[in-house]
Design a binder for these strands. Structure first.
Length: 349
DNA sequence: CAACCTTTTCCTGCTT
DNA sequence: CAAGCAGGAAAAGGTT
């Protein structure tokens, strides 16, 4: 089980990203999450070490006073600055106010050492977000993924949404994924661009992810696991025979089974994913965590084409509308064409 | 390089 | 009984 509860992280993201837009987004939250319930993404208390990092993903112009404090606090720590010499009142400003300060004003307020440090840091943050407009790198990456994903869908964008059963018609065999993310064979519902507040009106067509109560409608209700039809057929992700084991069943049959756990990673030389060209590092860069991926989709509702939506931002409840599509995107991001919603949901839990 | 963390995969049991 | 879901366990691989 992940030590970092997805719900808390997403809620923190939610709060950070939206609290200037949705002022009532931070009610009293229960301090304890009773259990990890993927149906309901509720709000446990956000740990400070998580929330304190969120200002990094927002343009300084959008920082709240709290973000500014966190930012200053981080620099006080990193520079071993004696915080006792710093007046809290000096730090009481929001992002826009902070951005208006020039170098000399910073030095005047925070002193020559910390002031210079803060000024330099602020310039870096500002230039970073000036270049990237609204989005952080991870967000851009996810958005690019979304764009590519949607570009690869050959479905006409209909003006009406078919309710519910489009996925019914898809057999597991038809669900074969191809290299380069060719999802033309993926019989999803046609995607209609949705605005921030313009969601599907008929909830029955959606894969319920959220909601409080429900019991188990964790999406995918009409769709079998595509793994059987795709994962092993993909040359890149097929498992070598050596990784398979023969397991005797009670009936004495010899059955070919995959061992538990993740199969060894194969060479990425033949990867044709859009990421192959951009990611050369030995280690995956930051911003590739599942919770970040989910967050990025959620905070860009105008670009997620109805893949997911906030059901109740205040409660941190969101819903998968195209659960398999989201899983496919995640799989592409992780260069894993056998990713399914079942696995994605397990990772989330 | 080891410890830790996250993700992926398989499996079992419960609920509907 | 079948399907869907939750969660345990194991393993890979990334991060620190």
């Amino acid at each position: 089980m992940s030590s970092m509860c997805l719900s808390s992280v997403l809620t923190c993201a939610n709060l950070t990203m939206y609290h200037t837009v949705v002022p009532d987004v931070l009610p009293q939250q229960p301090s304890v999450l009773p259990s990890i319930n993927t149906q309901q993404i509720s709000n446990p208390g956000c740990s400070s070490n998580i929330s304190s990092q969120w200002y990094r993903q927002i343009s300084p112009h959008c920082w709240t006073a709290e973000n500014v404090l966190e930012w200053i606090s981080d620099h006080v720590e990193s520079t071993k600055f004696d915080a006792s010499t710093l007046s809290l009142a000096c730090c009481a400003m929001d992002g826009p106010a902070l951005c208006q300060m020039n170098r000399d004003q910073m030095i005047g307020v925070f002193g020559p050492q910390l002031g210079l440090h803060l000024h330099q840091s602020l310039q870096e943050h500002k230039s970073k977000y000036d270049l990237q407009s609204l989005s952080g790198p991870e967000l851009n990456e996810t958005c690019q993924l979304l764009d590519n994903f949607l570009d690869n869908l050959n479905f006409p964008l209909l003006s009406t949404i078919r309710i519910g059963h489009a996925e019914d018609a898809v057999s597991k065999r038809e669900f074969g994924y191809k290299d380069d993310y060719d999802l033309a064979s993926l019989a999803m519902e046609p995607m209609t661009p949705l605005g921030d507040t313009e969601y599907l009106s008929d909830n029955q067509s959606e894969s319920e992810y959220s909601s409080s109560s429900n019991s188990g409608m964790f999406g995918f209700s009409n769709l079998g696991s595509p793994e059987s039809g795709s994962g092993e057929s993909d040359p890149e992700f097929s498992y070598p025979l050596i990784s398979k084991v023969h397991i005797k069943t009670e009936k004495g049959e010899s059955q070919l089974k995959r061992p538990r756990g993740r199969p060894p990673k194969l060479s990425r030389e033949h990867s044709s994913s859009i990421y192959s060209s951009s990611k050369k590092n030995k280690h995956a860069p930051r911003g590739t965590h599942l919770w970040e991926f989910i967050r990025d989709i959620l905070i860009h509702p105008e670009r997620n084409q109805g893949l997911m939506k906030w059901e109740d931002r205040r409660e941190g409840v969101f819903k998968f509308l195209k659960s398999e599509a989201v899983a496919q995107m995640w799989g592409q991001k992780k260069k894993n064409s056998s990713m399914t919603y079942e696995k994605l949901s397990r990772a989330m839990r």
